[in-house]
């Protein structure tokens, strides 16, 4: 690591470490959808013995780990259009049933990435300004409104150094008031009726330091 630390003596969690941290809070037997990208890595840290059932929007209930190249089935892909595998007990479903699972409240958890999240749980993760020539929403809105719990896996700051936890989202919303918990490079934060409340800080981090990278009031729970 040659990157300069944002806070002296505080080592932020890498994306993989955030994914591992989320996995610790997953309850055995839950039905879970993991968003495309980094959230997908959470599955690697949930033991098979927990019998967590992973859902993929394109019609899999009971998705397994990424197959080796020799085991790739050209007909079996996930919502990120990567080759997928099935666990014993898996089911294949059509798109309307798959989204009935998402929209009908049958997912115990959905973990997504975010461009911004506001102190009342509004999520912005599908468009930067709404004026893109061809924005793409995919299943983000359905997952965000439908899952019993929406957690985010994200960094505190954008590449430009702007706080992504904020009072109000300036980017177009994916869904209003849907986010319950946020796992970041520096903390685990609940979204409560009173706004952001940190329930865990990485080693050496203080709440005062955390406040400097959150663009809304934040306190310890």
């Amino acid at each position: 690591m040659t990157d300069k630390l944002l806070f002296e003596n505080v080592k932020p969690r890498s994306r993989v470490e955030i994914a591992k941290r989320v996995a610790q809070d997953v309850t055995a037997g839950w039905c879970i959808n993991l968003g495309i990208g980094i959230p997908t890595m959470i599955a690697d840290y949930v033991p098979a013995s927990a019998e967590v059932i992973f859902h993929s929007e394109n019609g899999i209930l009971g998705m397994g780990t990424a197959p080796s190249e020799a085991d790739q089935d050209p007909w079996l892909i996930n919502a990120g259009k990567q080759y997928a595998s099935l666990v014993t007990g898996a089911a294949i479903i059509h798109h309307a049933d798959s989204f009935a699972i998402a929209r009908g409240g049958h997912l115990d958890l959905c973990v997504l990435g975010a461009y911004q999240v506001s102190q009342n749980g509004d999520l912005a993760n599908w468009a930067i300004d709404g004026g893109e020539s061809a924005p793409a929403v995919g299943g983000a809105m359905d997952l965000a409104v439908g899952a019993k719990r929406v957690w985010l896996l994200m960094t505190h700051l954008s590449k430009a150094g702007v706080a992504k936890l904020t009072e109000n989202c300036s980017y177009p919303l994916t869904a209003a008031g849907c986010v319950k918990r946020i796992y970041t490079d520096y903390a685990v934060i609940d979204v409560t009726e009173n706004g952001f409340e940190a329930i865990e800080l990485v080693d050496g981090m203080t709440i005062e330091q955390l406040q400097r990278i959150v663009d809304a009031p934040i306190r310890m729970a």
């Binding site: 929007e57 798109h95 309307a96 798959s98 989204f99 998402a102 929209r103 061809a134 924005p135 793409a136 929403v137 995919g138 299943g139 983000a140 809105m141 359905d142 439908g146």
Partner: peptide, 8 residues
Amino acid sequence: IVPQGTIA
């Protein structure tokens, strides 16, 4: 653009 679940 239509959300995937809504289009389904």
